[in-house]
């Protein structure tokens, strides 16, 4: 990654967040009944704090340089991708594997679509999506014997 002369303020902010996480770990370790459970997380929370403080120190003295600027792009699509994946996963225990997977696949196809919708694409893409979902459903459920969620809605 090439560096430029910009100060890495973002890196310093993430380092501060890391210190927060490490403090949370140390606070949580106060409640453990056995000291053997606490010694390892406390030690490495200390390492995380030391490394993060060192980076913030470098930033304060102007020695922490930002990496190359990241590519832009459509933030809404990024957010929607994560939201749809999370929503579909959370819906899986309720509507079942296929009930969640097919709408998720369709929604992600729409989110990732940059080309114009031709008649061919309108017909073929849903067919391919359905084939992928059903193919994996069969592979995991019947061949690998993975108990995929059936959905509480459909359980007697």
């Amino acid at each position: 990654m090439q560096t430029d002369d910009r100060k890495d303020t973002g890196g310093a902010v993430i380092s501060a967040v890391m210190i927060g996480i490490a403090c949370l770990v140390i606070w949580d370790s106060m409640s453990y009944t056995d000291p053997d459970s606490a010694v390892f997380p406390r030690t490495f929370a200390g390492v995380l704090i030391a490394a993060s403080l060192a980076y913030i120190g470098m930033w304060l003295f102007g020695r922490a340089k930002a990496g190359a600027a990241q590519e832009g792009g459509a933030s809404v699509r990024r957010f929607l991708l994560v939201a749809v994946m999370l929503g579909g996963t959370m819906a899986m225990p309720v509507v079942g594997f296929i009930g969640a997977a097919l709408p998720v696949f369709a929604a992600l196809t729409l989110i990732a679509m940059y080309d114009p919708w031709t008649r061919f694409r309108v017909l073929v893409y849903p067919l391919i999506g359905t084939a992928i979902v059903l193919g994996f459903f069969y592979l995991f459920r019947e061949v690998l014997l993975v108990p995929l969620p059936t959905g509480s809605l459909f359980e007697g």
């Binding site: 997977a101 998720v104 696949f105 196809t109 729409l110 990732a112 893409y125």
Partner: peptide, 10 residues
């Protein structure tokens, strides 16, 4: 990409 992204995500 409209098929690659959902396929990988799935």
């Amino acid at each position: 990409k409209a098929l690659l992204v959902p396929a990988i995500a799935f």
